[in-house]
Design a protein around this nucleic acid. Structure first.
Lengths: 224, 224
DNA sequence: CGTTATTTTGATATACTTCAATAGGGGTGG
DNA sequence: CCACCCCTATTGAAGTATATCAAAATAACG
């Protein structure tokens, strides 16, 4: 078993469309393992996009900065998720580890060569891109029209759905969540406190949420 | 020359990655022409996604609604733009004509069959999807962190860049723009009035904008 | 031309931000 | 193992950008 396959073994891919399909098994031979400490950078916005990545362990965030420092977190990547599939020439966002993380790195050139031989790979890449596009459209609706509480509800529902449970672990800080949802960390904190007060969620610790009333949370999230 | 090719001839594809590539010429045989009156629906959110579309004339908007009527306009599609490339099983937004429009309709099944034979088609689809994804990420940054005036500036810069000129025509209403940028139509109107007052733009009519100070506008838009 | 839809402009309200202070929580060194 | 420190989160009070409500001014349309 190759080193990469061994690492894969440890990973627990998320369910649904983001799951690593069998077609990608051939890719493992191409992959190199990368480990990151908390807050370490995987790549920077503007770097030449030479690689695709897949998260094996830990968590990664993508972010973009405005000149004056305002930050936006595009997405959070958990074990099983691919990073960089949207890259054209250069990466258009920076990727950093939220917590200590293990990531597999694939050369885009090799993947493209493989895709040329095996059409399934190409189709799967397209399917993953479409799925990201759908997620992005949901997120734009959220950022455009939802209230703070609805944003938090949508966010929690999204993670719970991906993990498939009522128990949700948030490896990121309140600031990260805020920058992802277009809010400040204070507003995130208050919205969570309010949901807790209403009995919709339970905060076992600031990073461990249990959904007590799924109905109510889904109702707030609207889009679900 | 087929009817579709004739219609194509009339269209003036936008510049850049959204331009119809030569590989798609073969598609014209598959296309059927559809005409829409202002505010007519091309398809609805939830409909089975049987077709891809390409705008030939006029303009189309994609939109999503929350239960209580809050609306989000995901994108505006101008001549040369493709619609529905992001669809998985069903369409996830409604598409409506902003002004009288002509659109070409391609059966997805036929396109997929063609893509199976001609790998270039598949690669082009993936490239278009990546490009949309990049645009979506820019829009999320805008919705998450930019001020009203910055949003308007970014929006104007985006259209100007696509059309390649300082003269911009806005076929959509202030409400449409607001729903696209996460603002109200009043705020859109005020932001435009302010940019005009500052001498950055000129409003020849409410739908015809001329950019007078590209520097200043780009600076406000930040991301450019 | 009269009628209706859209846009502009003004006054007020509010959700969220900003600023500020306190409280946890987890790791490290004494 | 405890005490201290730093970082993150919570909570409170005040400020602000944008929304909402309302009316007038254009523009579009039959």
């Amino acid at each position: 078993m190759s080193a990469v396959a061994a690492v894969r073994q440890e990973s627990r891919p998320a369910q649904g469309a983001r799951k690593a399909p069998d077609e990608f098994a051939a890719l493992d031979r191409l992959g190199a393992v990368v480990t990151l400490k908390r807050d370490e950078t995987l790549f920077r916005e503007g770097d030449a996009a030479q690689y695709y990545f897949k998260v094996v362990q830990g968590a990664v965030r993508s972010c973009k900065l405005l000149r004056d420092g305002r930050r936006h977190v595009g997405d959070f990547y958990l074990p099983g998720d691919f990073i960089g599939l949207d890259a054209e020439q250069d990466y258009i966002f920076t990727a950093e580890a939220i917590a200590d993380a293990t990531v597999v790195r694939y050369s885009r050139r090799s993947v493209e060569a493989l895709a040329a031989q095996e059409p399934k790979i190409g189709r799967r890449l397209l399917s993953l891109a479409c799925h990201s596009l759908n997620a992005a459209q949901q997120q734009m609706l959220l950022l455009s029209r939802k209230t703070a509480e609805e944003r938090i509800a949508s966010f929690l529902m999204g993670i719970a759905e991906k993990k498939g449970g009522m128990q949700v672990t948030l490896p990121m800080t309140r600031t990260d969540i805020g920058d992802h949802l277009g809010l400040t960390m204070e507003t995130v904190s208050r919205a969570l406190a309010h949901l807790k007060h209403e009995g919709v969620i339970e905060l076992k610790s600031s990073h461990d949420v249990r959904i007590r009333d799924r109905e109510a949370l889904a109702d707030l999230a609207e889009a679900y």
